[in-house]
């Protein structure tokens, strides 16, 4: 079973220092350090006091959805509806809060909404396995945001920041450490553990490496896909909660484009859109690389037009780097 399922790909190899240092993650570590050095030298405010911790607040709420997105990429699937799911979940939260529902219950409604949205994606994809996930989630992307627009129309639903503890989910701190950062670390550790240390995680890689082989090996491929897509919906709702706490009110146009940011983070972290590849530490590093780079460039007030170019180039060049290496190799052989 082990050989056929494609698990050989991730089977433990004998430890060697050489392969250890050649890993993708080291490239990211270098990048991460480089960016921090750059930021610190460009702006005196970068390393000041609680500045670094505050910096995490400017990007971490998007990062919650990058965690399950990594799972989806490991499977060789993709989900571009997460931004809309987050939007709809946040709108539901605020909608019911304004109807007088207690905040605790609203959060549950929000999580439920996200979970249902994710489950609908999963259901369509597993019932109609011919359909590419890109198509289905493109359809639901438009649909979910459409529902949010239909609910709110031209209004905003707000007043959320009057609930202090809810607002503190985003703005609050324990000591100088933001609450959101703590939540993120907990989630990231759980996601990383499940992916790399459990049977479930190994199955994900097996499916991503070779779906057919995995199926023949007795793995319930469709069931696992269903679980992962549903989970992604749930975490889109988690993002929605922090986003709602951040803004204190919601509109039907929030969280636009989050899906692409989450995918970019995961790909930069070493997860391939072809499936079966990627390690979790890489994702975490990538999240902080993108986030810190943006924050640093923001601190020196770089124009957002330049920022677009820099972030785009960073993504392409980093993904291309290992291939340039192999291009040289091919040339030498020839």
């Amino acid at each position: 079973m082990a050989t056929k399922s494609g698990r050989t790909i991730i089977a433990d190899q004998p430890f060697s220092w050489k392969t250890f240092f050649l890993k993708w993650e080291w490239l990211l570590v270098i990048l991460f350090l480089g960016i921090n050095v750059m930021n610190a030298s460009l702006s005196e405010y970068y390393l000041s006091g609680a500045g670094l911790f505050n910096a995490t607040n400017s990007f971490l709420e998007k990062a919650f959805v990058a965690l399950p997105m990594a799972y989806i990429l490991v499977l060789g699937d993709i989900d571009i509806s997460v931004g809309s799911t987050a939007c709809l979940s946040a709108v539901m939260l605020a909608y019911f809060y304004n109807l007088g529902v207690p905040m605790g219950l609203c959060i549950i409604i929000c999580l439920l909404t996200g979970t249902i949205c994710g489950a609908i994606n999963g259901l369509i994809l597993t019932k109609f396995t011919e359909l590419a996930p890109m198509i289905v989630t493109l359809g639901t992307q438009i649909l979910y945001r459409g529902i949010a627009e239909a609910m709110l129309g031209d209004e905003a639903r707000g007043g959320l920041s009057s609930v202090k503890w809810f607002s503190n989910l985003y703005w609050g701190k324990i000591g100088i450490v933001p609450i959101m950062l703590i939540c993120f670390i907990v989630c990231a550790v759980i996601f990383g553990f499940v992916l790399h240390k459990t049977f479930f995680g190994r199955r994900l890689y097996a499916i991503g490496a070779n779906k057919l082989a995995a199926e023949y090996a007795g793995i319930k491929v469709q069931k696992i896909r269903m679980i992962v897509f549903t989970l992604t919906g749930t975490f889109a709702a988690v993002t929605a909660i922090f986003l709602a706490a951040r803004m204190g009110s919601t509109r039907a146009d929030i969280a636009t484009g989050y899906e692409l940011e989450a995918i970019a983070m995961a790909v930069l972290g070493g997860f391939s859109t072809d499936g079966g590849k990627g390690k979790f530490p890489g994702l975490i590093l990538a999240i902080f690389i993108v986030g810190m780079l943006r924050y640093g460039l923001g601190l020196v007030n770089m124009a957002s037009q330049f920022m677009l170019v820099v972030i785009g180039a960073l993504l392409i060049i980093t993904v291309m780097l290992p291939n340039i290496k192999s291009m040289f190799k091919v040339k030498k052989k020839a």
Partner: peptide
């Protein structure tokens, strides 16, 4: 090579900024 490339890229970014 990969380390060099990474370093040069950071350099390029610095220069870019």
């Amino acid at each position: 090579l990969s380390v060099l490339l990474a370093v040069s890229m950071i350099g390029a970014m610095l220069a870019g900024c």
